[in-house]
Design a protein around this nucleic acid. Structure first.
Lengths: 200, 200, 200, 200
DNA sequence: CATGAATGAGTTTTCATTCAT
DNA sequence: TATGAATGAAAACTCATTCAT
């Protein structure tokens, strides 16, 4: 058979991306077969190859797009003129909101980095390091202007990011705390980590 | 052929556990074949089945042993009479030291939890929740006796654990900081998170 | 999209025939995909089916055209009034020149005969047998009029053809011998095979 | 299931070699699937990989073994003290007998050389060139001692080999001519090609 | 206990072919 | 006529697992 009436390339690619995202997040890249992705989207396994040359490319596409969207979203959300405490709060709120609405992307971008081969791996890792440089810059600025009392900027940055990302593994919107409450809570926790002068 | 001269059941099982640990940590459970484990240990794939009934059992064995060792190690390290600040410091130091010497076990116990089926999954998760209850208990005690100023005990516990575990992904013994320095550093970061009164 | 500016049915079919000829000769019919032929010509695989109903038809077309051209070329080159020695020389020169300028066609017409299905196979084989009857007729005439001393007309015919065709697998125009020299050389070899009376 | 009682590695490998030989000769390497070979031998497709790492290795094994057996058989059949005419007759008889009893090996060693990749290709080609050097040496010796009147040793060698090999494509043991008759016939044809002085 | 051979279902990917546009 | 998206079957190869030896 051939193209089904009403089918459309861009739409199918998007359906595939979505299904792969969901399945990779749930079961892991290696455990998900092209057939499983096909079944989820209602196309034949072979048809996937019209849109992504290999399974690896499908993963890479997801991670690449995720990291680039993350970076460009931050560039929009960033307010360069803010003083370090407000800048850090802005980052924490951005990070939480962004990550909670893309929890699957975030999850696989950490879990499946190792499933990327060669150049794909390096490219994503570089983007991630770039993202991590944003909070570090804020911390360093706050350390030098005296608004923070940082124990070790490098370690504190990693601690903050690990702390924030950890939340995506247990937070459920319908639990005890709302997104707003979580955000406020983490803003305060981070403020403590950086030794911010007058907290609450 | 039969048993190779000098080979021994318990030894082989241990070699297999080690190879599986290494490979699962490096590539993920689903991406590692029984043949790969066999190749790493120098036995044939079929021989693995003399020691572990299925691949799933091999993973389960690793995680089960890890969690039980973790729990019993903590029970030895725990000093029930310490006041909350010292108790928390004790926990942080224990956790870091334990996790940095078993980074592969820790890694797969987080990453491959989802690869466990049914009961295996529940059993490990229960053990993990039990482990997480230890710091939470310390936090709660410190909150009620006034030695800590905790924002939210549940969230803070998760934040502490995420922060500590995050370290295993970037810490390398031969880097800028020694294990002792890292320990001291995280003790102070955690103290800040719980709002400990007089830090250093 | 529709027809690309400047594209034209007959032209495209010819491009396809050429690409298929080249690829079938290089890698063999079974090893060449429609997509490979498409890639070589810059069209999409689907477009091939506007010109050839199946892959098998494409091969058949090549072989059919080749054999028919070969036969009609010989009918033009044949000089029915020549005495057997001159007639045989004429055939050898024709065969060599024709085959060296169509080495790919010749090659696949021998190699891929078996890839033809049913009737296609029989049709080509019949044409080939017809072609082989020409030298055999010359040999038989020469045997009966005493200008040749043939050991076995049937076997000698096959021997001559095999000998001549073998050349297409190793002869390169830019080697030690020119086409003219090769021709002259094989004329003498064939004359020996048929026991021609006064050779050079 | 596992190994079937009575099954045996060396036997299975031999069965596979035989089936592959037959099928490759009949349909060509590219057109034969591992499943087809499996079906012919009664094993599962996957089991083939216990004996040959890839399909390419299976072909290579066949050609390698064939060429090496051919060379060592000739070394046994060769009688180095014979004068060129007798030596050439010896070679022709050897070649015909050997090739007619291994027509499938011969066939694929010519047809599927191109299906060999890289080093495999070069190795087989080198062996073949070595084999072709044997008749050439005889021709050269006969040319210099005056027992032959050779037109061009290089071309004549190729012509002889092509002529002899051509026979495998049409000779059937149950046809008009017996193997002995064919042999005798080709001995005389070859004698003519090399301009041997007093033929019958 | 270990080996090596086997199974049967699975993997990613490619194929010839079709057809809406 | 050509494109690009689709199908369904098949390709080579791998997998977890089993079992005779």
């Amino acid at each position: 058979m051939a193209r089904r009436a009403g089918s459309n390339g861009a739409e199918t690619a998007e359906k595939l991306r979505n299904a792969a995202l969901e399945l990779f997040a749930r079961s892991g890249y290696a455990a998900v077969s092209m057939r499983a992705i096909a079944a989820e989207t209602g196309v034949q396994a072979g048809a996937i190859y019209n849109h992504f040359p290999t399974k690896q490319d499908l993963l890479n596409d997801l991670l690449q797009v995720h990291m680039e969207t993350l970076l460009s979203s931050w560039e929009e959300a960033e307010k360069p003129d803010l003083a370090p405490p407000a800048a850090l709060e802005n980052f924490v709120r951005f990070h939480i909101r962004y990550h909670l609405t893309r929890s699957r992307e975030v999850f696989i971008s950490y879990m499946e980095l190792r499933s990327l081969e060669g150049e794909n791996f390096s490219a994503i890792e570089a983007l991630r390091r770039k993202y991590e440089s944003f909070p570090r810059a804020i911390l360093e600025k706050g350390a030098s202007d005296g608004s923070f009392d940082i124990i070790d900027p490098q370690v504190t940055t990693m601690a903050i990011i690990a702390m924030l990302n950890g939340m995506t593994t247990w937070f459920r919107g319908n639990g005890r705390l709302s997104l707003d409450e979580i955000e406020a809570l983490y803003v305060r926790l981070v403020a403590r980590l950086v030794g911010q002068k007058k907290e609450d």
